[in-house]
């Protein structure tokens, strides 16, 4: 999930907005789990944040840092390599019917 979250944060967004975006892309998340993840990513300096208190409710906006962008690139490469590897391995499966059922 952290890769999906970090991919959304080239633009400043607050927690509820991030969850809505994730849901719109089909990635269902238990809402409470997002905030500890954001806190961890911020603690690791992959995200930075600021409070916006001008509106009806205070909101904490997050955005990716330069370090976050570097790490994201590494994660994407790893993720794509993993997908390629799985696709390659899937070609070795003899019982394709079972494979389709698993999907």
């Amino acid at each position: 999930m952290q890769l999906a979250v970090i991919c959304l944060l080239d633009k400043e967004r607050y927690g509820y907005e991030i969850i809505k975006n994730l849901n719109d892309t089909g990635l269902k998340v238990e809402e409470g789990t997002l905030y500890p993840l954001l806190r961890r990513l911020e603690g690791n300096e992959l995200l930075s944040s600021r409070w916006e208190t001008g509106g009806p409710r205070p909101r904490k906006y997050y955005i990716i840092t330069d370090l976050g962008k570097e790490i994201r690139l590494n994660w994407l490469i790893t993720f794509k390599t993993l997908i390629d590897t799985i696709t390659e391995l899937e070609a070795n499966i003899q019982d394709k019917g079972a494979s389709k059922n698993a999907e």
Partner: peptide
Amino acid sequence: KRMGPAEDIADMYPEE
């Protein structure tokens, strides 16, 4: 309820 169990969420936060 949608947020998830409070104890589980608490455990996910980094210690600061």
